[in-house]
């Protein structure tokens, strides 16, 4: 119990004193996870629209597969991306291993199915009436997908927030792809794991509290932006 209180006090202390190590780690965590979320969202939202709108063989199987991948272990994604970008891998020439960019790629892959699945589910939540109305009003396929995505924006945003949450809280990809190199690829979660391993429980606790505080700020910000864009 005392570790929790101590951790809380230490967290406050580190934030108030603007501890440079902490700021660097927190900023890197935020940068990597936001980039990963952005990349995943930019691809999955239109892709989800296309999957939802088009009728094709194996559509249901595809959706089931996507939903299954919600629970893919982070270490499996870490391993696959590791093969992909390690020196001998097909993307080895990019030199992404043990770099923040490699971690962005890994996290984007990790949260891709979650956001994609939730986009499809959000679009399915829009009634057929609305879809028919849009088509009947003379929308092209592109215009139709765009308007339906707009109509489902709040549900889609929830999916994106969930994706971000999984990205910033995961350890597997960050550890295997990033390597937890101090000052370069160390993020909040890997720092917590390391701190715990070294017996610095209150530091780990403090980092955990900061991680949650950051997540809360991001969620608030996204909701604020979404609200600004409603009539």
């Amino acid at each position: 119990m005392s570790e929790i209180i101590e951790g809380f006090l230490q967290a406050v202390n580190m934030i108030v004193t603007l501890n440079p190590d902490l700021l660097q780690i927190a900023a890197l965590s935020l940068y990597i996870s936001l980039c990963a979320t952005l990349i995943a969202a930019v691809i999955t939202i239109p892709l989800g629209g296309l999957i939802h709108f088009r009728e094709f063989r194996g559509k249901q199987a595809l959706i089931t597969l996507i939903e299954t991948l919600y629970s893919v272990p982070t270490v499996i994604v870490g391993l696959l991306v590791y093969f992909l970008i390690s020196k001998s891998g097909p993307l080895g020439f990019l030199g992404l291993l043990y770099s923040p960019e490699g971690m962005i790629l890994g996290q984007a892959v990790l949260i891709f199915p979650i956001i994609l699945g939730l986009v499809i589910s959000a679009l399915s939540g829009i009634s057929l009436n609305i879809r028919d109305t849009i088509v009947s009003l003379g929308a092209t396929e592109f215009q139709g997908i765009f308007e339906i995505i707009r109509e489902a924006r709040f549900a889609i945003l929830s999916g994106v927030i969930l994706g971000f949450g999984r990205a910033i809280s995961e350890v597997g990809v960050a550890m295997m792809i990033g390597g937890n190199i101090r000052g370069e690829t160390r993020v909040l979660t890997t720092a917590i794991a390391l701190g715990t391993g070294m017996g610095e429980f209150s530091l780990a606790m403090a980092l955990g509290i900061i991680l949650l505080a950051i997540s809360m700020m991001v969620v608030f910000l996204m909701k604020f932006i979404a609200r600004r864009y409603q009539p």
Binding site: I134, G138, Q143, E147, Q230
Partner: peptide, 18 residues
């Protein structure tokens, strides 16, 4: 069936699409 926006924007859709 109306879309979740203003009345004016709802009425404007057909024109916007064209």
């Amino acid at each position: 069936a109306v879309l979740n926006t203003t009345v004016a924007e709802n009425v404007a859709f057909g024109l916007k699409f064209r």
